[in-house]
Design a protein around this nucleic acid. Structure first.
Ligand SMILES: [Mn+2]
Ligand SMILES: [Mn+2]
Ligand SMILES: [Zn+2]
Ligand SMILES: [Zn+2]
Lengths: 143, 143
DNA sequence: ATGAAATTGAAAATCATTTTCAATTATACT
DNA sequence: AGTATAATTGAAAATGATTTTCAATTTCAT
């Protein structure tokens, strides 16, 4: 976790932003929680131990965490932004159950390779992609 | 276009909803515009010829158009819901340029097949999926 | 220590979308 | 054709996530 905190501080320095206790508290709460967190969920976690940190600051800090490369946004189509760990985590995509809402992380190297190939064929320089398969999980699929 | 209108009317009948001039006006505007339209964009188009149709009705009708199978929602990550034609159109995914915002429709059968295979492997029953590749288009990629 | 520049949190604003509700309209059934 | 009933309508208000505003506070290079 120290490595991540250092990377975050470096990122702040690089863009002339200041290291504040609020920002560190938000970052640490994010790092300790290995989940796909919405801003609100993270605010509630931070708020428990540090009620002095405002909602707005959590929002703003989450943007910084993303930009520092420690997190990426995931979008399950419900119009709520969620963050997942990026640093030290392999890229992956998701399958989302339309009934119970559970989701599963998936990674298929063959698909990843074909995506790059497809982009190249179209003279497109890929930066990132998003793939979500919606359907019914093992339990919910049994009708 | 008549075929689509018939399908829409059938869908309404099936769920005991009424055929109204407002709904037909919204549908026709959608069918005539082969674009990835947001609700607001479609409202403006409808409004030109039929200022009596309200914003809310456009929203509500778009939901019906989706449910009738004539359109599907696309999500380019900007928190705005857009609809594209579904009926008579092959499924496809998108590549979105991070610089100029242009997007391209892509279809790669090998990827589609692997997605299904992946789902099956996880005992997941796929219903639909979404794949977007973000990056730089041919023009913007040249720096 | 000092001061310029950045940060903060509360409240207000924004923006897409959804809900509410009283007035209007479509449709099934005389 | 007339009527009853349930659905529909549009304007306005509500919602909910996110963003902006701003005066007070804090950081950090000097
Ligand atoms: Mn994940
Ligand atoms: Mn498309
Ligand atoms: Zn499920
Ligand atoms: Zn471009």
């Amino acid at each position: 976790m120290q490595k991540e905190i250092e990377l975050f501080k470096e990122h702040l320095k690089k863009i002339n932003l200041k290291v504040t206790s609020q920002r560190l508290k938000v970052l640490e709460a994010f790092l300790k929680t290995e989940k796909h967190l919405s801003c609100e969920e993270l605010f509630l976690i931070v708020h428990r131990n540090a009620p002095e940190v405002g909602y707005t600051t959590v929002y703003r800090t989450l943007k910084l965490i993303q930009k520092s490369g420690l997190a990426r946004e995931v979008d399950f189509g419900d119009r709520v932004s969620r963050l997942e760990h990026e640093y030290g985590h392999q890229h992956h995509d998701h399958m989302v159950c339309l009934k119970c809402g559970k989701f599963f992380e998936v990674y298929e190297p063959e698909i990843e390779a074909l995506q790059d190939k497809l982009a190249k064929k179209k003279n497109f320089t890929p930066v990132r992609h998003k793939m979500e398969i919606f359907g019914y999980c093992r339990e919910c699929g049994k009708k």
